[in-house]
Design a protein around this nucleic acid. Structure first.
Lengths: 230, 230
DNA sequence: CGGAACATTGACCCATGTCAAGTGTCGTGG
DNA sequence: CCACGACACTTGACATGGGTCAATGTTCCG
């Protein structure tokens, strides 16, 4: 039987919270960025790793013709910027006012001297991120628009459950455009799908950025083709 | 300006070849698997990491209704099975007769005692794999069928160039179905796209599993929307 | 109050999926 | 060596999900 692992779609290295890691972060400076401000861009020197304290950040790549793929959203507790060798290979942009703790990579290497398992933790953190990336690939590669949107909502719901919030009431800090670029859909399709789910009585749009899940079980079965272990 | 990094699409931890790593692998047993035989399946205990010596392996996840997403192919020199915590979260299946070097995870942890940087190497290996996974997301999320197939061919071409083989003559060890499940397309669309590229004089199908690239520059511009730095 | 940005809705169309023949190609056994 | 069957691949005809283009609503902030 599978008790398998990650629920999917929290694509930014869920917090590796251990003593040595917390210590490394403790001295880190705090940085505020406004909505739409970049934390770093593709090609920038990878000087820091950041942990989101409040707010939310979108991680994305762009094609030369402007098409954009968001590869993940980072919420409070998530790390961004890991796994970059020398320079960043993607962009990180705040999607609302955000506070970040900035950890210089050089300092990180120094911390390793005190705690050699730190690399193991980084390894695990990146491995988790890899797992999410692959789950997202499954979603964008093989699923219909409805399945994608529902999976996305359920992933947010699970995140809420994990962090002690109401799993039926979702805040969507990102725009429809962001959701579309994450799921490989257009704004219009995302919007139509929300409308359809509302018409089916499965969700309620309290506000365009606030969704109430009415019938989670029905949503789960809609998301199907769901990877094992919900 | 970007000198950025990875060419994309070699989704299985390109070989981390260092002394300590080679030593760890040296004592490893060799295993032969036939085409279609599983190396491991989702849910299996993650007991070993494997390095492909000859042959090729497909890594994939399946949805309950049978849809399949191949997240990468592993060729000689590539590692498979890294990043699994406890149990594997995907399947690894040989796509032709394959020889693998099997490295017990327990032994790997022992080797770390001798060389603490080993974890750093593993971290880097997984980070590279993550970069490929994200490149693939960009491809399957945002591109047309033609762009996907051409990107795929060019990635194989680059791999050939990197390993000292003819970058214009490609061996496709995988079936059309595998390619489709990798790129998020159907068999028929993959086949039609090959036919179209042949009709355009850009490729030649020596054999259904052997492709000759005739006009690589034209292919590159077709692949466009290509991520920066070719 | 006005305007910009975001979201929704509608009409239409096309790329790709689906279904259904056909056509190699390879390996096996007679 | 040939015949057969099993697959894999190709090709065609058709259907449709979701993209595109366009208009309208809504929200929020100055």
């Amino acid at each position: 039987m599978h008790m398998s692992a990650q629920p999917a779609h929290h694509a930014s290295v869920a917090a590796a919270s251990t003593k040595s890691f917390e210590q490394a972060l403790a001295g880190a400076t705090l940085k505020r960025v406004e909505a739409k401000e970049f934390v770093f861009a593709e090609g920038d020197a990878a000087s820091h790793v950041y942990r989101v304290e409040t707010g939310a950040v979108a991680l994305f790549k762009v094609l030369i013709d402007g098409r954009r793929q968001i590869v993940g959203f980072a919420y409070p507790g998530d790390l961004v910027g890991l796994g970059a060798e020398g320079e960043h290979m993607m962009n990180a942009q705040a999607i609302k006012p955000t506070r970040l703790r900035c950890l210089p990579i050089s300092g990180l290497h120094r911390s390793v001297a005190q705690d050699p398992t730190l690399y193991f933790q980084l390894y695990q953190a990146v491995a988790r991120e890899l797992a999410s990336a692959r789950d997202l690939m499954l979603t964008t590669g093989q699923r219909t628009a409805t399945e994608r949107v529902v999976s996305f909502l359920l992933a947010l719901s699970r995140r809420n459950a994990r962090t002690g919030r109401d799993p039926a009431m979702l805040e969507l800090p990102m725009t429809r455009s962001d959701i579309g670029d994450f799921l490989g859909l257009t704004i219009e399709t995302v919007s139509r799908t929300f409308t359809k789910l509302r018409a089916m009585g499965l969700i309620e749009l309290v506000h365009s950025s606030e969704v109430k899940l009415i019938d989670i079980d029905a949503l789960k079965s809609l998301a199907d083709g769901e990877d094992r272990d919900q």
